[in-house]
Write a protein that binds this DNA or RNA. Structure first.
Length: 110
DNA sequence: TTCGTGACCTAGC
DNA sequence: AGCTAGGCCACGA
């Protein structure tokens, strides 16, 4: 009988959820940094894919993640773009109409 | 199986 | 500031 998952080492997905949940309110990070924090440097695309599969009602702060260039990864005006922008706005993080982060709030600090 | 696509990134102009 | 090139890799057609 194999051991249950809980007794083994955390999976990459679990490490990602933990890193994601660790982003402080009012701060943001990038897909690449998140990948590195989860122990998978160079796997930014994988992070983006994981976030795209998050269930609708997820409590995780997916909206605190954007491209390394400081821009949201959704087309401006799209529903997803506006959702993310609104969530960030609630935390005091301003995003321009074009999707650019207007303040230095990347985490961890550089 | 190959090929295009994608919530990406860095380096180099 | 905006290209381009190459790297990354899971998925579906």
């Amino acid at each position: 009988m194999p051991e249950t998952r809980a007794a083994q080492q955390p999976t990459a997905e679990e490490r990602l959820w933990l890193a994601l949940a660790a982003i402080p309110c009012g701060q943001v990070t990038s897909y690449g940094r998140l990948a590195a924090l989860a122990g998978l440097p160079g796997r930014a695309r994988w992070v983006g894919r994981q976030l795209s599969q998050l269930p609708q009602g997820s409590r995780l702060p997916w909206y605190r993640v954007m491209g390394a260039s400081g821009k949201l990864s959704f087309p401006p005006e799209s529903p997803a773009f506006e959702r993310q922008r609104a969530r960030l706005q609630e935390e005091g993080v301003a995003i321009s109409d074009g999707g650019r982060l207007l303040s230095r709030r990347f985490w961890p600090d550089e």
